[in-house]
């Protein structure tokens, strides 16, 4: 399924302003269902808007909605940087 490539990272690695497409979600995390409902499914596109003053949470835009993801949550979203 998902092949790690040179552009592969987690959402946590993205800088504010960077866009990426989602390649998958880590298995076995409790917030997986919530992320799936919000549209964090493979192929979906997202953009990191900003980080809160202490670096966490991260504001992410996905299909027009803005969500705040904590570090642990952002680390569970694998992304492919838009080249």
């Amino acid at each position: 399924m998902h092949q790690p490539g040179s552009n592969t990272a987690t959402l946590c690695d993205l800088r504010p302003g960077e866009s990426a497409s989602i390649s998958g979600l880590e298995r076995g995390v409790s917030f997986r269902v919530r992320l799936l409902e919000l549209g964090f499914v493979p192929g979906g596109r997202l953009k990191v808007i900003r980080r809160a003053p202490l670096g966490c949470p991260v504001e992410v835009e996905i299909s027009g909605s803005h969500y705040c993801l904590r570090r642990e949550q952002a680390k569970a979203v694998w992304v492919e940087r838009a080249s």
């Binding site: 995390v29 409790s30 917030f31 269902v33 919530r34 992320l35 919000l38 949470p57 504001e59 909605s65 803005h66 969500y67 705040c68 993801l69 904590r70 642990e72 949550q73």
Partner: peptide, 11 residues
């Protein structure tokens, strides 16, 4: 608890 389900939306 192994929680962290919270995802806040910024409307």
């Amino acid at each position: 608890s192994q929680a962290l389900a919270t995802v806040l939306e910024l409307p």
